[in-house]
């Protein structure tokens, strides 16, 4: 129990600290790296709750895909943080207001939230990855295959919209390089001395 509490406080405090760093770091690449750290700690919290499937998904999807996408965007776009910080004080009241509203709504939701008895119960001796797998590939097989078609379509769509073959690009082709013979590449000429090529 003690180890669990220690792990919880470790994950929670690192998650909060890295969350603060995400919004306060001057270098945007650092901010994204702190975001990844926050994701990892949140995954740790999920494991402590016994939701190992969510933890895996968080790492695979958010760290593996979303954060990498952010990194790409941050590195490719020239984000001028000084320009963004300009007028920070003007927007502060509005931002605080929106934040306070959201906080109030969250408090209202959690205040009135009662877990229906029986909803959270789970089948005995079945961890949640296995429980999901049992319905995903049986009852929901139809939807699972449908979703795979959507993913296939997304891949095709991305290729159609972005991939283009440029003419005049020199590509390295190992086979032609190796198959070239000496007489195709070298020409011997007799030069009269003093007259040049």
């Amino acid at each position: 129990m003690l180890i669990q509490s220690l792990a919880f406080y470790l994950f929670a405090s690192v998650a909060i600290a890295s969350g603060v760093m995400v919004i306060s770091a001057r270098n945007t690449v650092h901010a994204v790296l702190f975001l990844i750290l926050a994701f990892f700690n949140a995954a740790g919290l999920f494991v402590l709750l016994g939701a190992e499937f969510l933890a895996m998904i968080l790492i695979i999807v958010y760290v593996g895909a979303v954060a990498v996408l952010f990194l790409f965007v941050v590195m490719m776009l020239d984000v001028d943080t000084a320009a963004i910080r300009q007028g920070f004080l003007n927007y502060l009241p509005v931002g605080l207001l929106v934040g306070a509203l959201l906080l109030g709504e969250l408090a209202a939701v959690f205040g009135g939230w009662v877990l229906t008895p029986g909803v959270a119960s789970k089948a005995p001796a079945l961890d949640n990855t296995e429980a999901l797998g049992r319905v995903l590939y049986t009852d929901y097989a139809f939807l699972f295959i449908g979703a795979s078609m959507v993913l296939l379509l997304a891949m095709i769509g991305a290729i159609v919209l972005t991939f283009r073959q440029r003419a005049g690009v020199r590509r390295q082709d190992a086979a032609t390089q190796i198959n070239r013979r000496r007489d195709q590449a070298i020409e011997l000429r007799k030069l009269a001395s003093g007259s040049g090529a």
Partner: peptide, 16 residues
């Protein structure tokens, strides 16, 4: 869910 999945499959192709 099937409704949404079908709708997304058709719309996504239409966007492209």
């Amino acid at each position: 869910i099937a409704l949404y999945l079908g709708l997304e499959l058709s719309s996504l192709a239409l966007y492209v």
